Computed example of a mutant assay.
Amino acid sequence: MTVPFQTALVTGGASGLGRATARHLAQLGARVAVLDLSQERASAVADEIGGVGISADVSDAKAVAAAFDTACDALGSAPRIVVNCAGIGTAARILPRDGVLPFAAFEQTLRINLLGTYIVMSHAAQRMSTLETLDGDGTRGVIINTASVAWQDGQIGQAAYAASKGGIASLTLPAARELARVGVRVMAIAPGLFETAMTDSLPEDVRASIAANIPFPSRLGHAGEYALLVEHIVRNPFLNGTVIRLDGGVRLQPR
């Protein structure tokens, strides 16, 4: 069984959750545009899955518009699935011990994570709205954004990150309500602690300590499990306007 939508665009698609999602959608039969800040890495993943690699800074509206033009030309139509995985993780206290207030880090985190998601979502909705409907419900497409469990469980040092992911979670319902008129669903996934480049760099004892706090299964999440949830959201037409935690039951401690 193939996914009901045959064209997809995945941001942050050259690594981690985005790469796993791009690969999984391609295996299900979708033609995938892999968007990443690095053209080289985007092209490498695209070559592997028979897609197209595109470079863009998601916080740059003009660059994202150009990326959608490229994707539409390469895919033969606007993407019917858009998954936003591009983002950065930052760690900075509101009151650092060195006394230097991290305003620049806060602004950058919101620009990339929150504004970037909004820009991509807006361009995706605009392109999807021009497509033919697929069924009697008037379905045109689905947008899946990536929040984080830090949206609800933000730890010390995660003020910027939690704020950016909380914004993504909060825009899910109003976006879904607005885009309902053009047949576009909007969902968000809030991953917990996953195996990514960030956690790969941690010492093994630290990784083991993190995993021990996850109720079940007591391990870090696999990127493929995120991709499986993307698949289910795409397949299930009644999922709309909500945030799904994908976390093994973990609740983050203050630090």
Score class of each variant (00 low, 15 high):
Q155S: 14
N213Y: 13
L246R: 00
A44Y: 08
A42S: 12
A169G: 02
G141S: 08
G248S: 14
P96R: 11
P4D: 01
A74I: 07
V10P: 00
L229C: 03
S77R: 13
R127L: 12
R245S: 15
L193S: 09
G224F: 10
N113H: 07
I156K: 06
L131A: 03
R80H: 11
A26Y: 10
C85Y: 02
D153R: 11
V3Y: 06
Q6Y: 09
V250A: 15
G89H: 14
S59I: 06
L193R: 09
Y226F: 15
L179K: 02
F194I: 08
I233W: 01
D57C: 07
S43T: 13
E132T: 08
V250D: 08
V100C: 09
A20G: 07
T196A: 09
A33F: 04
G18T: 00
E204I: 03
Q253K: 08
F106S: 07
A14I: 12
Q158F: 12
Q27I: 02
L134N: 00
A211Q: 08
S122I: 09
G76E: 07
A8W: 06
G249L: 10
D69M: 04
E195N: 05
V45L: 13
L25E: 07
G166Y: 03
M121F: 14
H232V: 14
G18L: 00
A61C: 04
L110E: 01
D98A: 14
L252Y: 02
V34F: 12
A44N: 09
S218D: 05
D57F: 04
A176V: 13
A105R: 14
P191W: 00
I54S: 07
A91H: 15
S148D: 03
A212M: 13
A42C: 08
T146Q: 05
L134H: 05
R80S: 10
Q158N: 15
N84I: 15
L252W: 01
G183A: 01
F5H: 10
V234S: 01
A104F: 00
A223H: 05
T130D: 01
G53V: 05
L9V: 14
P191Q: 00
L37G: 12
M128A: 00
F106L: 10
